[in-house]
């Protein structure tokens, strides 16, 4: 069995972008703040389109914002 997860650095990137608020990021990428909260907590994996929009908002390549992890267990 393997457990898959997508991790993100959105909290850190917001901090280094003049402490951008979740609402500001949400407005930039066209979603609600609730969605940014869910992504940041790792509760929701965004669509590819939204992931790219978030990366563009931070002016970073996608892999610096999101990373894919596969943990083997059992």
């Amino acid at each position: 069995m393997s457990k898959e997860s997508i991790k993100n650095n959105i909290r850190t990137l917001r901090f280094f972008n003049n402490e951008m608020t979740q609402q500001q990021l949400a407005d930039k990428v066209g979603v609600t703040r609730q969605t940014i909260v869910a992504i940041e907590k790792g509760n929701y994996s965004p669509s590819l389109e939204l992931a790219f929009k978030i990366a563009i908002a931070f002016n970073k390549p996608l892999e610096e914002v999101f990373s894919y992890h596969q943990e083997k267990s059992g």
């Binding site: 066209g30 979603v31 609600t32 609730q34 969605t35 869910a38 929701y44 965004p46 669509s47 939204l50």
Partner: peptide, 9 residues
Amino acid sequence: EPNFSDELD
């Protein structure tokens, strides 16, 4: 009230 529903909604 949010005036749109995004992909999560």
